[in-house]
């Protein structure tokens, strides 16, 4: 073992330089893989392009559009074509992946909205009871789609840490190896699943689902800041805005508790945004309406969800101030 004090033949610490070069090379390879080969990022990139094209088409053809955004619970649930054909509501589904984080999802959606549009926030509650800062997938998505400028607005700490997130990570690599060994598709969704208005089909498997979806009880500080800034932005840009709670599967025995939790959550949201008056309060106990997770609706569930959202939007049916509070008090009793 070389001693730190032993005389060296060279002034350059070759091993250290070699290790740094290895780290840099590995990062470059990881970044190239992430940006160009990662099947999840490739899917999200393609989905974003489809959604953008649909949004542009609506912008050209209509004076006003509805944009609904959130994670994959939104991506699989809201059928823009159905909204347009059945109800005359020009709607784009901007739902992507909850794993991107609330900050990136929100800033991405804001980009697709124009003066006078209606923006429906359908972020999954757990995204707002946790940090809203960009996650690795969110950062990778932004770079892959050429929207790296969104990261700062989404709460990224530094450009260097963003760049360092451009690598696959253990979960991705080991899952990929597992899929290759098992002969399964590399990603659960395929680009051909994406409809022109942005919705895609959830994976139709009927394994047992537990519920309700896990989340914290309170909005985090950065979630509150995000909602406040979103409200302020919508006022300044004359964008009508409301929150629509995603429908989550919950077994019958936990149903009442879940509705109560959702009411508490909506009460907090209503401090910042109007909340659409969904009579289900986001709690669904029919397993048949759910696909692979307790937030992913089947096409049949998606149709019901779309119909309900269309009704709320046509009537602009939002909870009046105090109504949610009364309901919460009633459920306490």
């Amino acid at each position: 073992m070389p001693s730190s004090t032993s005389p060296s033949k060279t002034r350059i610490p070759r091993t250290a330089v070699c290790l740094l070069a290895t780290a840099f090379g590995a990062w470059v390879l990881g970044a190239l893989y992430t940006l160009y080969l990662d099947p999840e990022i490739a899917f999200l990139n393609y989905a974003a392009r489809v959604k953008h094209q649909w949004a542009q088409k609506l912008d050209r053809q209509y004076a006003h559009k509805f944009a609904v955004f959130g994670g994959s619970s939104c991506g699989v649930a809201i059928d823009g074509e159905w909204m347009l054909e059945q109800y005359g509501l020009p709607t784009v589904n901007l739902g992507l992946a909850a794993g991107m984080g609330a900050g990136v999802l929100t800033r991405y959606a804001q980009q697709e909205v124009r003066l006078g549009d209606t923006l429906i926030v359908a972020l999954e509650p757990h995204l707002l009871t946790d940090t809203t800062k960009p996650t690795a997938i969110g950062i990778q998505f932004c770079f892959a789609t050429g929207r790296a400028d969104l990261l700062k607005q989404a709460g990224s700490s530094s450009r260097l840490s963003d760049l360092l997130a451009l690598r696959p990570g253990a979960f991705h690599i080991f899952t990929l190896i597992g899929k290759i060994l098992a002969g399964r598709p590399l990603y659960r969704y395929h680009t051909s699943d994406i409809r022109p208005s942005g919705r895609w089909k959830a994976l139709l498997v009927q394994w047992p689902l537990d519920g309700p979806p896990a989340r914290g009880p309170r909005l985090t500080l950065d979630a509150r800041a995000l909602l406040a800034s979103l409200r302020s932005w919508s006022d300044q840009n004359h964008v009508r805005i409301a929150y629509a709670l995603p429908w989550g599967f919950v077994p019958q025995e936990k149903f009442a508790r879940f509705r109560k939790d959702n009411l508490d959550f909506l009460l907090q949201i209503s401090e910042f945004l109007p909340v659409l008056k969904d009579p289900t309060l986001g709690a669904i106990s029919s397993r048949d309406l759910y696909a692979d997770t307790n937030l992913h609706l089947t096409p049949e569930g998606a149709r019901l969800r779309t119909d309900e959202l269309a009704r709320e939007l046509r009537e602009w049916d939002v909870w009046a101030p105090g109504e949610l509070k009364q309901l919460a008090n009633a459920s306490e009793n």
Binding site: P2, S3, S4, T5, S8, R11, P13, T15, L19
Partner: peptide
């Protein structure tokens, strides 16, 4: 400036970071 010490240290640091981060 101790090139041999830096090389030796870099190997320990690399191993430590692998243990911790990976």
């Amino acid at each position: 400036w101790l090139p041999a010490g830096i090389d030796d240290g870099a190997r320990w640091i690399a191993l430590g970071l692998f243990f911790k981060r990976c």
